[in-house]
């Protein structure tokens, strides 16, 4: 880690916003540095709550966050928002538009909104979103709200990262079969039916309720809240539900801290393996896989063993 980054870290930890912002860019641009930075942040992590907001495109995720911010401010000194939008697979460019809906409190010192392009990551977040959480956490932002990009059915990385996952849907969203498919309806802690002034809200609620009641691996049936973000309808109730959920699920910051620590090391290890694999595949052993003469299953297993041996040697030699 070079001197510049150490300096930036020292400044960010002393509440210098520009340094924090610069570090977020560095982490986005360079996953090697992101890993190094996160490792050095470990001792100061584990003080924040992370709320994830997810749902299909246009469900009202940004508008809900905009409405929640002033209410959350009663329970938390400061709020950081990480808003992820999709990057183009053609140009790598992105139009990050979540801030447009979060325009009510742009001026407040107590809010830090950061927009992120997904940059090719497929799980609904950017690859560096988790690193950004570690940084905000270490820099004493006690509440971190993550908005995923508009998801389909299975992009639910957020449930791993957030302490509480809020899934935002709208009236008329799917039918009984949609509600019972795997993915979106089994990963939320709280379900919001936003734009609840639209027709079909009752049917959507019943179908969701029926589906959620059948989830086998949950001790609590997720709650369903109806909101109209644009008119602040139901927002106080939603925040109440989130806060209650945070209380009941993870009052224990120690537990959160342990979980984050575990996740961080899993991530760093898989990152190292990925890196080693990236280098390995350029070597002659790996390039020659295609020309290997494989005549029986034992040959295939031998080749696999050789590759694994190669990777583990590379990892040891790092």
């Amino acid at each position: 880690m070079n001197q510049d980054i150490s300096d930036l870290l020292q400044r960010a930890l002393k509440d210098d916003r520009a340094a924090l912002a610069r570090l977020l860019s560095i982490m986005e641009n360079n996953s090697v540095l992101a890993a190094e930075i996160e490792l050095s942040l470990l001792p100061s992590m584990g003080k924040s709550f992370v709320v994830g907001i997810t749902g299909p495109p246009g469900a009202g995720k940004s508008s809900l966050i905009n409405a929640l911010i002033p209410i959350a401010a009663k329970d938390f000194d400061r709020t950081a928002v990480i808003a992820v939008d999709p990057s183009s697979t053609f140009s790598q460019g992105a139009l990050l538009g979540d801030r447009v809906r979060m325009n009510s409190y742009n001026h407040s010192e107590k809010l830090f909104v950061r927009s992120m392009g997904s940059r090719g990551n497929l799980g609904g977040l950017a690859r560096s979103t988790v690193s950004a959480v570690s940084l905000f956490d270490s820099c004493n932002w006690p509440l971190i709200i993550i908005e995923t990009l508009g998801i389909g059915q299975i992009e639910l990385e957020i449930a791993e990262v957030a302490d509480i996952t809020v899934v935002v849907l709208n009236p008329g969203w799917g039918d009984t079969f949609q509600a019972n498919k795997a993915g979106i309806t089994e990963s939320g802690d709280i379900y919001v039916i936003n734009k609840s002034d639209r027709p079909g809200v009752h049917k959507t609620r019943i179908e969701l309720e029926e589906s959620l009641a059948l989830i086998p691996h949950r001790s609590r049936v997720p709650q369903i809240v109806e909101t109209i973000a644009n008119t602040d309808t139901g927002i106080v109730g939603l925040w109440h539900t989130i806060a209650e959920s945070l209380d009941s699920k993870n009052t224990d910051l120690k537990q959160i801290r342990e979980l984050r620590q575990q996740q961080l090391f899993h991530r760093l290890v898989s990152f190292k393996i990925e890196q080693a694999l990236g280098v390995a595949t350029k070597s002659s052993l790996w390039k020659n896989i295609v020309s290997q003469n494989i005549e029986n299953p034992e040959d295939a297993r031998d080749l696999l063993d050789n590759l694994l041996l190669d990777i583990s040697t590379r990892l040891r030699n790092y």
Binding site: S87, S91, G93, A94, L95, R99, V100, S115
Partner: peptide, 11 residues
Amino acid sequence: RDAGYEVIMIG
């Protein structure tokens, strides 16, 4: 965006 930039809109 199509030229590869990340464009942040704030309205």
